[in-house]
Amino acid sequence: MMTAIGDLLTTSPAVLPEELVDDLLRGQSFRVERIVSRGHASPDDFWYDQDEAEWVLVVQGEARLRLETDAEPIELKAGSYINLPAHARHRVEWTHPDVDTIWLAIFYTV
């Protein structure tokens, strides 16, 4: 394995038409991604339904995440995290339009 140095708070491009996803680390049963959202949300009627579990931390910014099983969205801010089991259907309802929301996501299998 190679030594890697980075900065989760690296400045994003001025224009961000789509979420920015950086693959930071991979192993046999996991991967770590840095995701940057700026006003991005899941398309209407779209739900993530992943084969992997996902632990996600909001490093910076704000977001609203909705689980299919919940009536109300979950408010996330810097420091908030959630662990989503595999196939927990969820969607991003909102991210702050003026501030980059930086997520650290760890996808893993158990």
Rank of each mutant, 00 (worst) to 15 (best):
N83S: 15
E75C: 10
D49I: 07
D70I: 08
D44F: 15
G6T: 07
F30V: 11
W94K: 04
Q60S: 07
R34K: 10
I35E: 00
T69R: 10
D44Y: 15
A14N: 14
L24W: 05
D23E: 15
V99C: 07
L20E: 09
T95S: 02
S80G: 11
V110A: 14
P85F: 11
L67Q: 10
G6K: 03
E93L: 02
V32P: 02
R26C: 11
M2W: 03
H40F: 02
V58E: 06
E33N: 10
G27V: 07
D45K: 15
V58T: 00
R64I: 03
T109V: 14
I102Y: 02
W47T: 13
M1V: 09
V36C: 07
E93H: 06
A78M: 03
E52T: 12
A88M: 07
L67D: 13
L25R: 01
V15F: 14
G39L: 11
G39K: 12
F46N: 13
H87T: 01
Q28A: 08
V59E: 01
L65W: 05
D7G: 02
E62G: 09
G61S: 10
A53Y: 05
F46W: 15
R31E: 13
M2L: 07
L9G: 08
H90T: 09
G39N: 11
H96D: 12
P13C: 12
L16G: 11
L84D: 06
A4T: 05
I102T: 03
P13T: 12
E33D: 14
T10V: 08
R66D: 09
F30N: 05
F107S: 04
S42H: 05
Y81L: 10
K77D: 04
L8T: 02
L76G: 01
V59D: 00
G6W: 06
L20C: 14
W55Q: 13
A63D: 00
D7E: 13
A63F: 01
F30D: 02
E72R: 00
E75R: 09
M1K: 07
Y81F: 12
P85M: 07
N83M: 14
E62H: 15
Q50G: 09
A88I: 08
R34H: 08
D49H: 11
L65C: 08
A71E: 11
H87Y: 07
